[in-house]
Amino acid sequence: MSQVLKLWNTTTAIPVVGKRLFSVAFAQKAPYFATIRPRFTVIEPNRAELVIPKRRGVHNHIKTVHAIALCNGLEAAMGALAEATIPADKRWIPKGMDIAYTAKATSDITCIAETDPEQWTSGDPDLHVRVRGEREDGVVVIEGVIKLWVTPKAR
């Protein structure tokens, strides 16, 4: 089991504050993630979800959640998914993102990252993580893929 999944399982066992503890710890590993104040809600192999609270610090000029804040949330969800899913003998690095902004982000946004189990064992180093962000009413405001490069760990 990966360190991220172990930390998730350990912290979420703590009533009330467990998910928040994990979210703060995760953002300390890559401090830029802290700028969106992610609240992780799901971490499991092949799926991760977090919420970006709609607040002034992530607003754009029309007071919706800024496009780059949304991308930051998708990247954080993807990173948690990758760490929770990748086989122990492999490593990953992001190599690109193809994103479409599909609606205004007028509420808190749930960022979701998903893969299929066979993607991690196929031998193809190009792995596409499906990502999307949804408003509280279920409308998708951003969607696309984050492209990973997955290779064997150096020995």
Rank of each mutant, 00 (worst) to 15 (best):
H66L: 15
E44C: 00
T41R: 01
K90R: 11
I52H: 01
R37H: 09
P45T: 05
P94D: 08
M78R: 15
P87E: 09
H59R: 13
P53V: 06
T35Q: 10
K90E: 06
I52Y: 01
A84V: 02
A34K: 04
I86N: 04
M78F: 15
V65Y: 01
N46H: 10
R55P: 04
R47N: 01
R37V: 08
M97A: 10
E83G: 04
K63Q: 12
T41K: 01
A67L: 14
M78T: 15
H66P: 12
M78Q: 14
A88Y: 11
E83A: 04
H59G: 09
P94H: 13
I68G: 12
K95W: 14
L81E: 10
L74A: 04
G57N: 11
H61E: 06
I52K: 00
P94E: 11
A80H: 14
C71N: 02
K54F: 07
P38T: 03
L81R: 08
A76K: 04
T64F: 01
G79M: 13
I99K: 01
A82D: 02
N46P: 05
V58A: 11
K54E: 05
V65M: 09
I86H: 07
E75R: 13
R37Y: 06
G73N: 01
A67I: 15
I36F: 02
G73D: 04
K95A: 13
K95V: 14
R56P: 11
V51L: 08
L74Y: 10
G73V: 04
A80Q: 10
H59Y: 11
D98K: 12
P45Q: 07
V42H: 03
D98I: 06
F40H: 03
M97G: 05
R37L: 06
T64N: 13
A34Q: 06
R37Q: 09
T85I: 08
N60D: 08
R56E: 15
T41L: 01
A76P: 03
K90S: 05
I62D: 06
A67E: 12
I43C: 02
I93K: 15
K95S: 14
I52V: 12
D89W: 01
M97Y: 07
G57D: 14
L81Q: 10
R39P: 02
N72Y: 06
A77M: 09
G79H: 12
M78W: 15
E44W: 05
A34M: 06
P53K: 05
A48L: 13
T41D: 00
F40Q: 00
P38N: 00
E75C: 12
R39L: 07
A80K: 12
A82L: 07
